[in-house]
Design a protein around this nucleic acid. Structure first.
Lengths: 197, 197
DNA sequence: GGCTTAATGCAACATCTTTGCTTTAAGCAG
DNA sequence: CTGCTTAAAGCAAAGATGTTGCATTAAGCC
């Protein structure tokens, strides 16, 4: 059986991967609301008790899987200019997160009541991307951005609309946010905000 | 038994109220993670099947109860000036929502996967308050605000920090948001954004 | 007062969750 | 390479939760 160990790390890692894969497959096939732990366990070829012991309950497994799925596979596109990079990234973010699938993932991530690691992971992905855009801009000799400001002005409103108003943000709306962000950085710079006490 | 009918509307309304009360009481007493439907049903003096039939599952009952609890009991404080009103309202919002209790309520509201009415209700409460501040400002001859802009610049970042960074926004942070909002409205007004396509 | 209808109670059943114990497999020392 | 140690998984029974058909109750309406 050693051949099947595509990934080093032993049985434990294999099972984690199998359970993640089974969860994602079932999410696609039967839909979020029809899923339960025994179903996932059977699909993954493990006993339910294993899932319960490692993840606690369905909510945490879904949060873990959703966070995994939201992990970016690549750096944001390089369009040649900071303005272009930022626009492309934010538009894509709004599209992905605003789609029904993205919304469901976001909700699953936020539903984890126990540790809240999943939400922090997703936030970290966004921060990393914004930092990449910033480094790229600086390397080009452009002005760059404040990550905190970008989150407040661009990312947070998008997420709020998706979660509370429950709709996909329109491209016009996102363009408006980008215009506001550009206006702030161009004409009326403020000192960076501290978001932790 | 008619004396106990504090509220007209029949048995159905009585039971809804009893279940809501039982849920809130148990949330306070034993904590969010220890609660389940049979426990709430017993406390409310109904059978579990009634709860399942009316609310579907625990998540929806918690979302409904949380939205109910987040319903404001009064209009925002009148401090005499628009700037004061807005500051007081936003600071209080950040405090209430950022507290452990507020965070839990917010998560419960967002966890509802079925109808998403609860999140929309909460959003509507905020909008109504902002509209009240606006009317008040206009009545005083002050400039007032755009509700959409206030949500994007003030409310959304606060919610994002609470949900994803998982911490209570500091007063300094909120002051920074207010300064940004004032700067936008004073020096560099933008056309109101459309948030629905 | 009697009828109609929607909602609840009851109880049996199905399913999910937990837990003690056994078994497996990975890591490590000799 | 073999045997020991330990963490994790399997198994199975017990416990709790979720579901459903049918009887009963209560509210609204002639």
């Amino acid at each position: 059986m050693a051949r099947e160990m595509v990934r080093q790390g032993g049985r434990s890692a294999r099972i984690q991967e199998a359970v993640h894969a089974a969860t994602q497959a079932l999410l696609d096939e039967v839909g979020r609301s029809e899923i339960n732990v025994p179903m996932i366990a059977e699909r993954a070829g493990v006993t339910p008790s294993t899932v319960y012991r490692r993840w606690g309950d369905l909510a945490q497994l879904l949060a873990d899987t959703a966070a995994e799925r939201l992990r970016p596979v690549a750096d944001p596109d390089d369009t040649g200019s900071f303005a272009g990079d930022l626009r492309a990234f934010v538009q894509q973010y709004a599209e992905e997160m605003g789609s029904p699938v993205g919304r469901a993932l976001m909700r699953d991530v936020l539903a984890e009541t126990a540790s809240e690691h999943a939400a922090a992971r997703c936030c970290a992905y966004t921060i990393r991307h914004l930092q990449t855009l910033n480094s790229r801009a600086l390397a080009r000799g452009e002005a760059g951005l404040s990550v905190d400001e970008a989150i407040d002005i661009l990312i947070a409103p998008i997420c709020y609309r998706i979660l509370f108003a429950n709709g996909e943000p329109s491209p016009d709306y996102v363009n408006g946010l980008l215009a506001r962000f550009a206006g702030l950085n161009g004409a009326n710079p403020l000192p960076s905000l501290h978001h932790q006490a």
